[in-house]
Design a protein around this nucleic acid. Structure first.
Lengths: 114, 114
DNA sequence: TTACAATATATGAAATATTATATATATGTC
DNA sequence: GACATATATATAATATTTCATATATTGTAA
């Protein structure tokens, strides 16, 4: 993971909010992220695709939903950066988490089998 | 320090190399950075000015040189991110450190008095 | 199969960032 | 003061990024 490319991924408000929300919730689908950050769906989708192509996120299709989570193959230093950023910037995400909590009809997550 | 603005600062190769070199060496002047990363002086100067305006670096003039170091007022989480990035990306900087070491006539740093 | 909802992608316009060149300013030395 | 070195800035050209709209794909349910 090239550090410049990694930080380019974090250097956009939409992408950083999505990443932080996913980091916080482990896994979220496009419609949940769209609701949480109050942006239009194609915009969210495009940024998620970029994060996936760069290797920061992995996706998993379940029925009509596509769920994203942080890539387990991300180098440790990058995971540390994400965790540190989340932990120290709770205020940055407060509104988004509130919107997510208020959201009705959230898709059920099938437990990943071991 | 807004996290998006912070990561925008890190999301450029010239700026990230300068930041990492300064993090590694504590303090460097424009001519040392210009030599280390092998870029033209106005380009380096411009990016350093941006890092200063955003609050990541502070500068100090000593004679004809201007020295930059990481701002002591940077929030802890941001300092942690810089340190973690430096520690885990030594290869990224190897050439730049070699060039810096080979550089002749480096300006002497006056000890900061306590 | 059709209708519908969720998600993904393509395109082009607008905004933004980066770059090189040229020029300006500041400092130190003679 | 004249000159050399170090650094900063302005400008214009170029490249990149972002966004909204439109279109395509996938899955579900009737």
């Amino acid at each position: 993971m090239n550090p410049v490319q990694f930080y380019k991924c974090l250097a956009d408000e939409t992408r950083l909010r999505c990443l932080m929300l996913i980091e916080h919730e482990q896994e979220l689908c496009v419609c949940e992220l769209t609701e949480a950050i109050d942006e239009i769906q194609p915009k969210v989708s495009r940024h998620l695709a970029q994060l996936r192509q760069c290797g920061l996120l992995v996706d998993r299709r379940q029925g009509q939903w596509v769920f994203y989570r942080v890539s387990p193959e991300l180098p440790d230093w990058a995971k540390t950066v994400l965790a540190e950023t989340l932990e120290s910037n709770q205020a940055f995400l407060a509104d988004n988490l509130k919107r997510l909590g208020r959201m009705g009809d959230r898709p059920a997550r099938a437990m990943a089998c071991c």
